[in-house]
């Protein structure tokens, strides 16, 4: 408990100093707010142009597809806001800059992954949160679906974190790992569609190996259709991926042999 509180305290410190840096010096951070917002708007426009004339696709009504888009936006924003900074870890490993970061008296995985957040995304976060609220209000879901929906959202955030963490830890072994962030973004955009439109093998792939469907699709599915998928898929997959990420990261740190100087 005390440990968890300390992590919250440190996350607060990260956000605070990140905000200071942004407010004082970097216009580009603010541009990133508009970039993400623009991204979400394009995605919505895309849906209304492509699916606007049909009333339902693969059993999903238009409003339900809208939930998918909002969930995708929301997860994306939380990820960018809190732990996008971890994408520079491969570079730190490569250059040996990781050395000094490893000497901080804070849980290493937490410190490295949450160290440089993007705090101005709080603006996008608020917009996304309102969107989520709107989707829930418009749906005719019952209490149990709504509760599971919110827990599933939390799981999605953790799952997304775990997947990124695993990908990034791989650079302890393969120094030159490409820009894994692009792959994730691509998958997210792909999976913000009713999952039934994918052939079964691809659905399986996107559920078990790269759980993009679990992250984006399941919350919306839980809200609008059946909540039992939460226990059958979301929860176990999140737990498995989270534990794997912890293990892979630990092994990676053991393997770290520094560089330079």
């Amino acid at each position: 408990m005390k440990k968890a509180l300390n992590l919250f305290r440190i996350e607060g410190i990260f956000l605070k100093y990140n905000l200071i840096a942004m407010l004082q010096y970097r216009l580009s951070y603010f541009l990133s707010v508009f970039y993400e917002l623009f991204d979400a708007l394009t995605m919505m426009a895309y849906f209304y142009i492509v699916f606007g004339s049909t009333s339902s696709i693969a059993g999903w009504a238009q409003s339900q597809i809208f939930t998918l888009v909002v969930v995708s936006y929301f997860i994306n924003i939380v990820c960018v806001m809190l732990y996008i900074g971890m994408t520079s870890i491969p570079e730190y490993i490569h250059s040996g800059q990781l050395d000094l970061l490893l000497l901080k008296p804070v849980n290493k995985r937490f410190f490295l992954t949450f160290r440089s957040p993007n705090s101005v995304q709080i603006l996008n976060f608020l917009v996304a949160a309102v969107g989520i609220g709107y989707c829930v209000a418009k749906s005719d879901a019952v209490a149990i679906n709504i509760i599971c929906f919110f827990i599933a959202l939390l799981c999605s955030i953790i799952l997304m974190y775990s997947v990124m963490c695993i990908l990034i830890s791989l650079s302890f072994w393969f120094i030159r790992i490409g820009n894994s962030w692009n792959i994730i973004e691509l998958l997210n955009q792909m999976s913000a569609k009713p999952k039934n439109i994918f052939p079964m093998p691809i659905q399986l792939l996107l559920t078990l190996f790269i759980p993009a469907l679990v992250i984006i699709n399941n919350p919306a599915y839980i809200l609008h259709f059946q909540y039992d998928i939460f226990l059958r898929q979301t929860l176990p997959i999140t737990v498995i991926f989270y534990i794997s990420s912890v293990i892979v990261f630990r092994l990676g740190l053991k393997k770290y042999s520094s560089a330079g100087g």
Partner: peptide, 29 residues
């Protein structure tokens, strides 16, 4: 908490912050 390392070719300071804010950050950590 007992150790510190300074390496001439590596930096532990956040380049986007002032030195003072960096120090305060470390103070909190």
């Amino acid at each position: 908490r007992l150790v510190s390392l300074v390496a001439g070719n590596k930096s532990q300071l956040n380049p986007d912050l002032s030195a003072w804010d960096n120090f305060r950050f470390l103070k909190s950590i």
